[in-house]
Computed example of a mutant assay.
Amino acid sequence: MGPTASGKSGIALEIARHFPVEIVSVDSAQVFRHMNIGTAKPDAESMAFIPHHLIDLIEPHECYSVAQFVNDALVAMHEITERGNIPLLAGGTMLYFRMLLEGLSALPPANSSLRRQIEAKAEQNGWHEMHNELLQLDPASAARIKPTDSQRIQRALEVCYLAGKPMSEILKKPRNAGLPYRAIKIALIPGDRGALHQRIAQRFEAMLTLGLIDEVRAIRDKFCLNDASPSMRCVGYRQVWMYLEKEINAATMREMALAATRQLAKRQLTWLRSMKEMREFDCLAENLPEQVRGYLADTGLKAATVS
């Protein structure tokens, strides 16, 4: 686990060179097909070197829930262990990690018809008005959800309508059973936040050089999307979308994307600080691969060279 640009994919591949693992992506953006550059998906060489799972599952106009992730991850992990290998979960979507480790609350599944109704009402009245409606139905959820966070407002309202009770009330109840495995939790934490921000800036410039703008343009031309689509709410994609819609210029697009990515990293670090029984490593350390390998060997994992 770790914030964006902390080097999770690189360390995962390093682990795969020494232990019998298969990688399970824990990334809510990498589930989308065609979104390769902006999500920093593993390249073809990496995918050929070691099996990767939960990448390229859906099209950009489709939705993917945390409940789907938990189910898909458990299926992938079972299949990996049946082959005699170890599931190595790597990514930065902390909500996915937490729900997989702790179990899901008994929330009703998504209802596409109801979601369309909520979206239609929001188009007419605005998301601030929908937030006011949530405030009446579920004050506790409304207090923790920003009036501008359309995705979470929609989900909270959906739960209220489907369950007939506030989502906050359901979340207080005991969760379903958590992960049926022994979890070795590794977190890559930057010892210098400024250095992480430099990595973020360098990586975004590299994405632009690789063709991020053309990637977003091709997706926009091929699929029926808008700026509220889950795929286009991903950091980087949202700002490039605004640029292509001529809402902002190139310089502003860069500034907004970097600011959003830094905010994402801050949220990821906040999530990580709340998680228990975790071994932290400085992602900026020069000997990070050796540190992680040594720690894994100390936990009892048996090394095996992957050919």
Rank of each mutant, 00 (worst) to 15 (best):
E169I: 09
L188D: 01
K146E: 14
I170L: 15
P109H: 06
G164S: 10
K173L: 14
A143Q: 15
Q124M: 10
R155H: 07
P147M: 07
L171N: 11
K146C: 12
N111F: 05
L104G: 00
K172N: 10
Y96G: 03
N125D: 15
M99H: 15
C160L: 03
E119S: 11
K172G: 07
L114H: 06
R98M: 09
A106H: 15
E133D: 12
L162T: 12
A156N: 03
L134I: 04
A140G: 05
K165M: 14
M167A: 11
L101G: 02
S141E: 07
S168A: 13
A110S: 15
A110V: 13
P180E: 07
E169V: 10
E133K: 11
S168W: 02
I170A: 06
I145C: 04
D149Y: 08
I186W: 01
R116G: 11
A163L: 08
L188A: 05
P180R: 07
R116N: 13
G126L: 05
P174S: 06
S150N: 09
S168Y: 04
P147H: 08
T148V: 09
P190V: 01
E129Q: 14
R175I: 07
R144H: 13
N176I: 04
I170H: 03
L179K: 00
A120R: 08
L179I: 09
A156P: 00
L104C: 03
L107S: 00
K121R: 13
W127T: 00
E133Q: 13
S141Y: 04
K165S: 13
L95F: 10
H131Q: 08
T93L: 01
L135I: 06
D149I: 02
P109S: 05
Q151A: 15
T93M: 03
R182S: 14
I184W: 07
F97P: 01
E102W: 03
P108K: 01
R182L: 12
Q136G: 07
N176W: 08
Q124K: 13
R175E: 08
L157W: 01
A156G: 02
A143G: 11
P174H: 06
A110P: 08
L95W: 07
L135N: 08
L114K: 08
K172Y: 07
P109I: 03
R116Q: 15
E102P: 01
A120M: 06
I189H: 07
Y161Q: 12
T148R: 13
P190W: 01
L95I: 15
E123S: 10
I118S: 03
Q117E: 15
G178H: 05
G191C: 10
L162P: 04
R175Y: 09
Y161E: 12
L95D: 11
L107Q: 02
L179Q: 02
Y181S: 08
M130W: 04
K172S: 10
E119H: 10
G126N: 04
I118H: 01
S168M: 06
A183N: 08
A110G: 12
L135S: 15
Q124H: 11
L95T: 14
